[in-house]
């Protein structure tokens, strides 16, 4: 019962998003962003609706969704921690920080902690290379992170 309800809720919001943004030049990415902002991921049932709305094949929409790193097919944990793995952060101990995060959470990059609290993601540069190592937690930026700073962030999200 729940599933059915949820499904029709999704259909309603996706239909609204499509009709709001369809007029844009090149509307697919803005629509996918809006869908992901609303649901935290791109629900399966959204793909055929978007395809129909934009006169594309499902395969085309699916191809776009899978091409970009940002789009998820499944919901993330309650919090998303993105750790920069790129060079300027490496030069300031970013790799050690990444190892520590993985160890403390008991997961690898691209995984979610067992209690569902945090999804750990790699990111290749946040433009905070002058205050490295850098991270982004639920959209908020953090720089000059050390082990203590990382532990504080993890504690904040209950991990």
């Amino acid at each position: 019962m729940d599933r059915h309800l949820v499904s029709s809720d999704i259909a309603t919001s996706v239909a609204e998003i499509i009709s709001d943004l369809k007029h844009l030049e090149g509307p697919l990415l803005p629509i996918l962003h809006a869908v992901q902002d609303t649901f935290g991921h791109i629900p399966n049932e959204a793909v055929p609706m978007i395809a129909l709305g934009l006169n594309l094949s499902r395969a085309e929409v699916h191809g776009v969704v899978t091409f970009y790193h940002d789009y998820r097919s499944h919901p993330a944990g309650r919090h998303v921690l993105k750790l920069c793995r790129a060079e300027a952060c490496q030069a300031m101990g970013g790799d050690r920080l990444g190892d520590r995060a993985k160890r403390r959470l008991g997961i690898d990059f691209h995984q979610t902690s067992a209690d569902g609290s945090v999804t750990l993601e790699p990111v290749f540069c946040l433009g905070l290379c002058s205050t490295a190592p850098a991270a982004m937690l639920d959209g908020a930026v953090h720089g000059r992170l050390d082990a203590h700073g990382l532990d504080t962030l993890l504690a904040e999200v209950g991990a």
Partner: peptide
């Protein structure tokens, strides 16, 4: 798009 690591002038 400023994807290059070590750059932030655009930002």
């Amino acid at each position: 798009d400023e994807g290059d690591s070590g750059t932030f002038a655009d930002r």
